Amino acid sequence: MTTLLRVEDLEFKQKPKRGFFKKQSKFTLSKVSFELNAGETLAILGENGSGKSLLGKLLVGAEVPSGGHIYLNGQKLSPYNLKQRCLNIRMVFQHSNESLNPGINVAKILGNPLILNTKLNASERQKKIEDTLKLVGLLPDHMFFYRHMLSDGQRQRLALAKALILDPQVIVADEPFAALDPSVRSQTINLIMKLQKDLGLGFIFISHNLGIIRHISDRVLIMQDGNLVETGKTDVIFNWPKSEYTEKLIKSHQSLITPR
């Protein structure tokens, strides 16, 4: 398989800030390295505060790393060239409401990134918006809707359309299903898996839901307190975990799904 994304020794050292009463603690993400192939899903798993969401932000350029390098198709990405990063690596957030402006309609939500990052004219932008809406299972007429007019599932599909509108090669999804009810969650998971197959996207899926991770991921990266604990193929990690921390996570998941 073709290596799409390569991360080498990526790290982040947060400078401590002083509050009114005490010095705030700093968070350090130790050196993390991994590869992502085209058409592959890498899951980043860990408890709250493990650094998994921070790692996602470093990949999309929302945070600047203290060290290390990110390569896309063998080309080094500059941590300061946000347009280069924005075009190729896009993010889907857990709460779609936070990423969708309630004051503008869907056409503008999807059209603004095209205006800022492409040379498409008005008619070409409209066609691109319609095609992307269809791609995620929405109707062309949805471009006239506002955020409050959409259901939770439709908002998450719109958030996915917003990530896809610039034809990225990698999608980073940070807990994209946590706020959805089970039936809508299942539909969204199936949609993402279909899009990945059809478009050859690389997916980085951040979660603590082991059931979903086991279902959709090819490989898993385990994080704890800002450190990379272990990584490997999903089946291998779930059946033969090397670290006590990974084994604890898997056993806690199995205790929830095993009938008493």
Score class of each variant (00 low, 15 high):
His69Leu: 08
Tyr71Pro: 05
Tyr71Asn: 07
Leu72Ile: 10
Asn73Phe: 01
Asn73Gly: 04
Gly74Cys: 03
Gly74His: 00
Gly74Arg: 01
Gln75Tyr: 12
Gln75Ala: 14
Gln75Arg: 15
Gln75Val: 13
Gln75Pro: 09
Leu77Ser: 05
Pro79Val: 10
Tyr80Cys: 10
Asn81His: 07
Leu82Phe: 15
Leu82Asn: 13
Lys83His: 08
Lys83Asn: 11
Lys83Ala: 08
Gln84Gly: 13
Arg85Ser: 07
Asn88Ser: 11
Asn88Ile: 07
Asn88Arg: 14
Ile89Ala: 05
Ile89Gly: 00
Ile89Val: 07
Arg90Glu: 05
Met91Thr: 11
Met91Ala: 10
Phe93Asn: 02
Gln94Cys: 04
His95Ala: 08
His95Arg: 15
His95Asn: 15
Ser96Arg: 05
Asn97Trp: 02
Ser99Glu: 03
Leu100Trp: 04
Asn101Phe: 00
Asn105Cys: 15
Ala107Glu: 12
Lys108Phe: 15
Lys108Arg: 15
Lys108Cys: 12
Ile109Met: 09
Ile109Lys: 04
Leu110Tyr: 06
Gly111Ala: 06
Gly111Ser: 04
Gly111Met: 01
Asn112Thr: 15
Asn112Ser: 15
Pro113Ser: 09
Leu114Asn: 02
Leu114Val: 06
Leu114Arg: 00
Ile115Asn: 14
Ile115Tyr: 13
Leu116Met: 14
Leu116Tyr: 14
Leu116Trp: 14
Asn117Glu: 03
Asn117Gln: 03
Thr118Ala: 14
Lys119Gln: 13
Leu120Ile: 11
Asn121Ala: 11
Asn121Met: 08
Ala122Arg: 12
Ser123Leu: 15
Ser123Pro: 11
Ser123Ile: 12
Ser123Asp: 11
Glu124Tyr: 04
